[in-house]
Lab assay of single mutants.
Amino acid sequence: ENVVSAPMPGKVLRVLVRVGDRVRVGQGLLVLEAMKMENEIPSPRDGVVKRILVKEGEIVDTGQPKIELG
């Protein structure tokens, strides 16, 4: 899985990584606000952040790609 998608609709509060960052499985990639709760979205695997496809403040839909890992 190279693309991390939104598990639920919500607002991107914070992006916790930058392009080029090495990430580990379970590491937080971003914080999504859904139903007035903050949810940290974890990396599904070890890898390197290739692209960030969302911006802080953006509203995302379920299944929308957010971060691409290499």
Rank of each mutant, 00 (worst) to 15 (best):
Leu30Trp: 05
Val15Phe: 09
Glu68His: 10
Val48Thr: 10
Val17Thr: 03
Lys55Met: 11
Val54Trp: 03
Arg45Met: 14
Gly70Glu: 15
Val31Asp: 00
Leu53Ser: 03
Val4Asn: 03
Pro44Trp: 07
Glu38Asp: 07
Ala34Gln: 08
Gly10Asp: 00
Ile52Asn: 00
Met35Ile: 07
Leu69Thr: 02
Arg24Asn: 09
Gly63Pro: 03
Gly57Ala: 04
Lys11Met: 09
Lys36Met: 14
Asn2Ile: 14
Leu53Phe: 14
Ile52Lys: 01
Asp46Thr: 09
Met35Cys: 14
Ser5Glu: 08
Val17Asp: 00
Gln64Lys: 06
Val17Asn: 01
Arg24Met: 11
Leu30Gly: 00
Pro44Lys: 04
Glu38Ser: 09
Glu38Val: 11
Gly10Cys: 10
Val25Gly: 07
Gly70Leu: 13
Leu32Cys: 08
Val4Cys: 09
Asp61Met: 14
Val15Ile: 15
Glu68Lys: 06
Leu13Cys: 08
Asn2Glu: 11
Val19Leu: 08
Asp61Leu: 13
Ala6Gly: 06
Lys66Cys: 15
Glu1Phe: 13
Val12Ser: 00
Ile59Ser: 10
Leu29Ala: 01
Val12Asp: 00
Val17Arg: 00
Val19Ser: 04
Glu40Phe: 12
Met8Ser: 09
Val31Arg: 03
Arg18Leu: 08
Ser43Tyr: 02
Glu38Gln: 11
Val60Gly: 01
Lys50Phe: 10
Arg45Tyr: 14
Val17His: 02
Val17Ile: 07
Glu1Gln: 13
Pro7Phe: 10
Gly70Phe: 15
Pro42Tyr: 12
Pro7Met: 12
Val12Phe: 00
Val12Ile: 13
Arg45Glu: 05
Gly63Gln: 06
Gly47Asp: 01
Pro9Ala: 13
Val12Ala: 00
Arg45Asp: 04
Ser5Phe: 14
Leu29Glu: 00
Arg24Asp: 06
Arg51Leu: 08
Ile59Gln: 11
Asn39Phe: 15
Pro42Gly: 10
Gly63Glu: 06
Lys66Gly: 15
Val48Pro: 02
Val31His: 02
Arg45Asn: 07
Thr62Trp: 11
Glu56Gln: 10
Val15Asn: 00
Arg24Gly: 08
Val23Pro: 00
Ile67Thr: 02
Ile67Ser: 03
Arg22Met: 12
Val23Phe: 03
Gly20Phe: 06
Gly10Phe: 05
Gly70Arg: 13
Ile59Val: 11
Val3Ser: 07
Arg24Gln: 11
Pro44Gly: 04
Leu29Val: 07
Pro44Glu: 05
Ala34Pro: 01
Leu32Trp: 08
Lys50Ala: 11
Lys36His: 14
Val12Tyr: 00
Glu38Trp: 10
Pro9Glu: 07
Val12His: 00
Asp46Cys: 10
Lys66Ala: 15
Val48Met: 09
Ser5Lys: 13
Arg14Cys: 09
Arg14Thr: 04
Gly10Arg: 03
Gly47Thr: 03
Gly63Val: 04
Arg24Val: 13
Arg51Phe: 07
Ala6Glu: 04
Ile67Gln: 02
Leu16Pro: 00
Ile41Phe: 05
Val49Thr: 01
Val31Cys: 06
Asn2Thr: 15
Asp46His: 08
Val19Tyr: 03
Asp61Cys: 14
Val25Asn: 08
Val3Met: 14
Gln64Gly: 05
Val54Asp: 01
Glu1Thr: 14
Gly10Gln: 06
Pro42Leu: 14
Val17Phe: 00
Ala34Val: 14
Gly20Tyr: 06
Lys66Ser: 15
Lys11Gln: 06
Leu13Thr: 08
Asn39Ser: 11
Val15Arg: 01
Ser5His: 12
Glu58Thr: 07
Gly57Ile: 05
Pro42Trp: 09
Thr62Tyr: 12
Arg14Glu: 04
Leu30Gln: 00
Leu53Gln: 02
Glu1Met: 13
Leu32Lys: 00
Leu29Asp: 00
Met8His: 12
Lys50Gln: 10
Val17Ala: 02
Val54Ala: 05
Val4Glu: 03
Ile59Met: 14
Ile67His: 02
Lys55Asn: 09
Ile52Arg: 01
Ala34Met: 11
Ile67Tyr: 03
Met37Pro: 02
Val49Phe: 00
Gln64Pro: 02
Leu30Met: 09
Leu69Glu: 03
Ile41Ala: 02
Gly47Asn: 01
Val60Ile: 08
Thr62Asp: 07
Thr62Ser: 13
Val19Pro: 07
Ser5Asn: 10
Gly20Asn: 07
Val4Phe: 06
Val49Pro: 01
Leu69His: 01
Gly20Arg: 05
Ala6Phe: 08
Asn39Cys: 15
Gly28Asp: 03
Val49Met: 00
Val4Ile: 12
Gly28Leu: 14
Gln64Cys: 07
Asp21Trp: 09
Leu32Arg: 00
Val17Cys: 08
Ile59Asn: 11
Val12Gly: 00
Lys11Ser: 03
Val25Met: 13
Ser5Thr: 13
Gln64Asp: 10
Lys36Thr: 11
Gly10His: 03
Leu69Lys: 02
Arg14Trp: 05
Val17Pro: 00
Leu32Phe: 12
Val54Ile: 10
Asn2Leu: 14
Leu16Phe: 05
Val3Asn: 06
Ile52Asp: 01
Gln27Lys: 04
Val25Arg: 14
Val48Cys: 12
Leu16Trp: 01
Val31Pro: 00
Val25Glu: 12
Arg22Gly: 07
Lys36Cys: 15
Gly57His: 05
Val3Cys: 13
Val15Cys: 08
Arg45Cys: 13
Lys50His: 10
Asp46Pro: 07
Asn39Trp: 15
Val4Gln: 04
Leu29His: 00
Arg18His: 10
Gly26Val: 04
Pro42Val: 14
Ser5Gln: 09
Met35Thr: 07
Arg22Glu: 11
Gln27Ile: 06
Val3Gln: 07
Gly47Cys: 05
Pro42Phe: 12
Glu38Lys: 10
Met37Gly: 12
Lys11Glu: 02
Arg18Phe: 07
Val19Asn: 04
Met8Thr: 09
Gly47Ile: 03
Lys36Ala: 13
Val48Trp: 15
Leu53Thr: 03
Leu13Ser: 05
Val54Lys: 02
Arg51Gly: 06
Ile59Thr: 11
Val4His: 04
Val23Gly: 01
Ile67Ala: 02
Val49Lys: 01
Val23Leu: 03
Asp46Phe: 08
Val54Arg: 03
Val25Pro: 07
Thr62Cys: 12
Asp61Ile: 14
Lys55His: 12
Lys55Glu: 10
Pro7Gly: 13
Glu1Asn: 14
Glu68Thr: 11
Val54Gly: 02
Leu16Gln: 01
Met35Pro: 03
Arg22Pro: 10
Gly26Phe: 06
Val4Pro: 04
Gly26Cys: 09
Val31Ala: 02
Ile52Thr: 02
Val4Arg: 03
Glu33Pro: 00
Leu53Lys: 03
Arg45Gln: 10
Leu29Lys: 00
Lys55Arg: 13
Lys50Pro: 01
Ala6His: 04
Pro65His: 09
Glu33Asp: 07
Asp21Phe: 09
Gln27Glu: 07
Leu69Gln: 01
Leu69Phe: 10
Val25Lys: 15
Ile67Val: 10
Val54Thr: 05
Lys36Gln: 14
Leu13Tyr: 03
Met8Leu: 09
Val23Ala: 02
Glu40Ile: 15
Asp46Met: 08
Gly47Phe: 04
Glu33Trp: 15
Lys11Pro: 00
Leu53Trp: 12
Met35Ser: 11
Thr62Arg: 14
Arg22Trp: 14
Lys55Asp: 07
Gly10Trp: 09
Met35Ala: 11
Ile59Gly: 05
Arg24Lys: 13
Pro42Cys: 14
Lys11Asp: 00
Lys66Ile: 15
Met35Gln: 12
Pro44Tyr: 04
Glu58Val: 05
Gly10Ser: 04
Asp61Ala: 14
Thr62Leu: 12
